[in-house]
């Protein structure tokens, strides 16, 4: 339903406002631009609608900058009405907005130019407000001008959420979830994601839970090359490592890892208690064995 979600294919969707502009009745829209992002696409659609309204008001031609300005103002007007309605709803501890929230928002926006009964809007009946009645009269008296071109709706379920996350489609209709939110990934997606990681990286918990013996078996093979792969799997018995930072040559005891490339590259004082770290690992292994 959301028109912006179908804008990933800009070529296909951008034809729509272009055709509408050409068809449209001599209004001066010279440049047929390709919408590069959803906001441009929505702006292009709103521009067509505003141009249609201007034509129904009696204008034959518009300057492009005037049309864009009026479109910007009108989209902000629409957004402000909606935001006011949503804020009124949330102030009433509701997530769903209703007609009263909308009428309150319309009142706030119409209060600039004023309307009959505007001095007592909080006392009177909202459903009898004259601002709403003016809208009713507008609908009854004005000519119906439908939008120039039907907007094709792409199915929301086809939309990919983000790179790196896997979209899973659930057939169950979850009514408590707002419609514009993407679908939740299914529960087994987590395992799929771990398998699909490119660099061979693993989660910390999987590195221990998956293979208990890997910590011990790889402890003897720790060297500089394997340090990247087994950086989370510390060996059990290691010697105490000391290094000095200011001006003196660094000593690497036990490990062949060049610490200059890692922790102390920024020449900052680092304290690392390996006994505790090893103790944690031993405890984890013991817990797992239990």
């Amino acid at each position: 339903m959301n028109p912006m979600l179908k804008d990933s294919n800009t070529k296909a969707t951008s034809k729509l406002p272009r055709r509408g502009k050409r068809k449209k009745k001599g209004l001066e829209v010279k440049d047929a631009q390709v919408a590069e992002n959803p906001s441009e696409f929505s702006f292009a659609i709103a521009k067509i609608a505003v141009a249609q309204i201007c034509r129904s008001a009696g204008f034959k031609t518009t300057k492009s900058n005037a049309l864009e300005t009026l479109t910007a103002v009108s989209t902000r007007y629409l957004e402000t009405i909606v935001r006011l309605g949503a804020s009124f709803a949330s102030a009433s501890n509701r997530t769903d907005s209703n007609l009263f929230d909308l009428v309150n928002g319309i009142h706030d926006l119409c209060s600039v130019e004023g309307f009959p009964g505007g001095s007592a809007i909080h006392k009177g009946d909202l459903l009898r407000s004259s601002a709403l009645r003016e809208i009713m009269n507008f609908v009854n008296l004005s000519d119906k001008v439908p939008f120039a071109k039907p907007i094709k709706c792409r199915d929301v379920s086809e939309v990919t959420i983000d790179s790196g996350t896997l979209t899973c489609f659930s057939n169950q209709a979850k009514t408590h979830i707002p419609r514009w939110l993407p679908h939740f990934p299914e529960q087994n997606c987590d395992q799929v994601l771990v398998k699909e990681r490119k660099c061979g990286e693993k989660y910390w918990e999987h590195s221990f839970a998956g293979d208990e013996n890997s910590v011990i078996s790889q402890s003897n093979h720790m060297n500089g090359k394997e340090g990247k792969d087994t950086r989370m799997e510390l060996p059990e018995g290691r010697e105490k490592m000391k290094f000095k930072i200011r001006g003196e040559e660094e000593k690497h005891v036990g490990l062949g890892v060049n610490m200059l490339t890692g922790v102390c590259k920024g020449r900052k004082r680092v304290s690392w208690n390996h006994n505790k770290m090893n103790g944690c690992i031993i405890d984890n292994n013991q817990d797992e064995k239990r």
């Binding site: 339903m1 028109p3 609608a49 629409l78 957004e79 709803a89 907007i151 419609r179």
Partner: peptide, 13 residues
Amino acid sequence: ELVEHYLAKSGFQ
């Protein structure tokens, strides 16, 4: 569709 886009953008449900 345009209005619903702005509704979704502003949190109007």
